[in-house]
Amino acid sequence: MSNKSDQPSVERRQFIGGTLAAAGALTLAPGVILHAAGSADKTTSGASGEHRWGMLIDANKCADGCSACVDACNSEHGLTDLGRPETDAVWIRPVKLKDKQTGHVDRLVMMCQHCEHPPCVDVCPTNASFKRIDGVVLVDRHRCIGCRYCMMACPYKARSFVHEALSEQSVAAPRGKGCVEGCTLCVHRIDAGEMQTACQEACTREGHNAIVFGDMKDPDSEISRILKSHNSVQIRADLELNTGVRYLNL
């Protein structure tokens, strides 16, 4: 941590302040080492490569007309509906697929697939798009210049650009005009040790149970067990991105 070098050091200022204060009949205690006693114990160790967070969506269970997951995502991350669907941010959206031959309709929800080999990261000129060591693909808004290359590179149309100035954002998801954003897999919950995304929570609450979130590297997790015993698919598996979001009954 460097002090601003063109200014006298804080220690010196403290000394002056302290000396003056001492003249005002207060005791000067030079060389007191300051430390916040409780600062270390709340600091978490951060993301770990021992996990890969992923999601499994059952197209059979995703109910027509339901928007519980979308609403939950919007409120969790403070995504406000400005009534402008062309430009409003969308992190998760329902999609209908119709087989023209048979007329069969599949419904599923689409969001950032948290690719192992994410094209958005490949193209980002500023390293703002990045993949965390635990597989979560994020935008670092401190670096994003809003060029939107990642939006063009993403095969899943998973990202949104924030077009308008915002205020009163959620403390869980700071976001603002001029940056690109997308599903974070509720990374603030993961970091707090809460093993449930907002969308999964809402889907389960509605009784649909179409979304399972979990650790794909843990063989005993629910998601791993289902992936092992059922035939799941990756959307656009031909791109070999090894997505973290998988689908059942598609």
Binding site: V32, V171, D191, A192
Partner: peptide, 25 residues
Amino acid sequence: SGSGKSLGYRLDGHSRALDMQQPAG
């Protein structure tokens, strides 16, 4: 709104800031 609850940083309020020694002088 409570949406930041799970961030963890406010679990025990601000007691941490009171834990420290007072600055010199």
